[in-house]
Amino acid sequence: MTHREEILQYIRKNPGITFRRLADELGIGIGNLQYHLYQLEKEGLIFSKKLGGKRYIFPKEFREEYEPLLIAISNETQRKILLLLAEKDMNQREIAERLNLTQATINYHMNALSKLGLIEKRKEGRNVIYSLKCDIEIIIRVINEYRPKLWDKLADRLIDLMLTLKGGDIND
């Protein structure tokens, strides 16, 4: 298998992968990877999107409607925010408290999610309330289809949370 075929196959298995992550995971030099990606894009086999200083790469057959969601769930903080908003609409302070992050950090991620078209905001008095613009079932489907490894991480965290609430240890 050639480098280019290996790269294309990896992108098909990991749509929305960032350029840097692709280089790291395949162990290919930056210049070499740039050349092959340019050729693949020129041949119409892949396309890429730049957002927030990162380049996300997709196979040509990828469903365009999932692009923004896949970009967002690739970022841990944004994924957590989406899952929180799936529970209920919240303001920035509530999200910051739940995630134990600063409001400035949450503001940055809310702006990114807003640019992706995944959330909407509305004013209620002095508060800005954020809500999901996409269906939670679509989020689940995208995670399941395109990022199945995330389910393992989410399941591990759920087990840890349950053990913490129970006050136990896995070895009990």
Rank of each mutant, 00 (worst) to 15 (best):
K88C: 07
R122W: 07
E120L: 11
H109C: 05
Q9M: 15
P68D: 02
H109Q: 08
R4T: 09
S74Y: 03
S131Q: 14
L69M: 10
G52T: 03
R20M: 05
H3D: 13
K166V: 10
M90F: 14
I143S: 04
L82E: 02
N127Y: 12
L116K: 14
Y108W: 15
L165R: 12
Y10R: 06
V128G: 00
R63C: 12
I170M: 14
L69Q: 00
A86Q: 07
E41I: 05
T102N: 14
N14P: 11
S131W: 06
I57E: 00
G53Y: 11
R20K: 14
L163F: 09
E97W: 02
I17M: 13
I170C: 10
M162Q: 13
K13A: 12
L82K: 02
S48V: 06
K80E: 15
L99K: 14
L45G: 01
E25N: 15
E137C: 13
D172C: 03
I95E: 00
I143W: 02
N100A: 10
K13C: 05
E64N: 10
K166G: 05
I143D: 01
M1Q: 09
H3R: 15
A96R: 07
L37Y: 02
A23R: 03
L45T: 01
Y38I: 06
I11L: 04
T2A: 08
V128D: 03
K166Y: 13
K60S: 11
A72G: 03
E61C: 11
T2S: 13
E65M: 07
K42M: 12
R93Y: 12
S114E: 09
A72W: 04
N111G: 06
L69S: 01
Q39P: 01
L51S: 05
L118S: 03
I170D: 12
A86F: 03
L83V: 10
E65R: 11
L101A: 11
L83T: 04
K88M: 08
I11C: 03
P15L: 05
T102M: 11
G31L: 13
I119Y: 02
E124S: 15
D89P: 01
R20E: 12
E43Y: 06
K50C: 05
L158W: 09
R55F: 02
E76G: 07
R141L: 14
L113Q: 01
K115H: 13
E97D: 10
L99S: 02
N32E: 14
G125E: 10
K153I: 14
E25Q: 14
M90N: 07
K60I: 12
A86C: 11
D160I: 06
R147M: 07
G53W: 01
